[in-house]
């Protein structure tokens, strides 16, 4: 089974997070629009979250997304809608990710249980500052 290892990354500019975090580099694609991003692997998150500006850069129109979603915490006050995006991680087969596309431009791109962790198995080796992704 294919598996790739990635380093924990230090976040810049340093404001809140000073420790390295498991940010995964991936390429998002939607209807021919491509965006290189880093997603935070968050096994405690129930959903994937896509910041507003990244959805726009992928060519998504807010008004065309009909399915509303309710998010929690600091995103509870922002509207969110379902958006499906193809994701490519290195040489893994491309997968379709379901995102809660939030109207907040200040959200972190989160990779959560639905559905990133359904598509990939993830092992965290924090003491070694790396994590491993395996295709399911």
């Amino acid at each position: 089974m294919q598996s790739n290892k990635f380093p924990y990354l230090r976040v810049l500019p340093e404001r809140h997070l000073t420790e390295p975090m498991p940010y995964l580099p991936l390429t998002l694609e939607r209807k021919g629009n491509i965006k290189e991003v880093f997603g935070l692997l968050d096994s405690g998150s129930t959903v994937n979250v896509l910041p507003y500006n990244i959805g726009l850069e992928l060519g998504a129109m807010w008004e065309e997304q009909r399915i509303s979603l309710n998010l929690t915490g600091n995103l509870a006050n922002f509207e969110a809608r379902a958006l499906f995006v193809n994701a490519q991680i290195q040489d893994f087969p491309s997968v379709e990710l379901a995102f809660a596309w939030t109207k907040s431009e200040y959200a972190t791109l989160i990779l959560g249980q639905t559905n990133f962790f359904s598509e990939f198995d993830v092992c965290f080796y924090r003491s070694q500052n790396e994590f491993e992704i395996k295709a399911r």
Binding site: P7, Y8, L9, R10, V11, L12, P13, R15, H16, L17, P20, M21, Y23, F38, L40, D42, G44, S45, T46, V47, N48, V49, P51, N53, I67, L69, N70, L71, T72, G73, N74, L75, A80, A82, A98, F99, A100, S104, E105, Y106, A107, T108, I110, G112, Q113, T114, N115
Partner: peptide, 26 residues
């Protein structure tokens, strides 16, 4: 081994309790 995060003005808070959104997406 660094990542540039744009517009990082809000503290990151995990979506631990967005179960309804998770059910809808699934």
């Amino acid at each position: 081994n660094v990542v540039f995060v744009e517009n990082q003005e809000h503290e990151f808070i995990s979506q631990t309790n967005s179960f309804e959104a998770s059910r809808v997406l699934q």
